[in-house]
């Protein structure tokens, strides 16, 4: 059994409006900074996962995303396993 460090990023799914991203983009434009376009606002989570392998760690994270952390109607995610 090893402990894997996971970084999870959850972001709005393509095609779903992202009012947070649009609002932040508007604020950036209000600073009169040229040449910057904010794409999306999402969420970040770091965690330790005890598992026997990288694949098992990923499976545990996928299950957590499915059951709790990601709303598939609105969001998509990527999970990075440190050292994988």
């Amino acid at each position: 059994m090893a402990t894997y460090k996971i970084e999870l990023i959850v972001k709005p799914k393509a095609g779903v409006r992202d009012p947070q991203g649009e609002a932040v983009d508007g604020a950036v434009k209000g600073l009169e900074v040229k040449g910057v376009k904010v794409h999306q606002v999402g969420r970040y989570l770091s965690m330790d996962v005890d598992a026997r392998s990288t694949d098992e760690a990923k499976r545990i994270v996928d299950d957590l995303c499915k059951r709790l952390l990601v709303n598939p109607n609105l969001e998509t995610y990527t999970a990075r396993v440190e050292g994988a």
Binding site: V16, R17, P19, Q20, E22, A23, N71, N73, L74
Partner: peptide
């Protein structure tokens, strides 16, 4: 699903 108001 329920998400952020638009306009925000």
């Amino acid at each position: 699903a329920l998400t952020y108001n638009n306009p925000p």
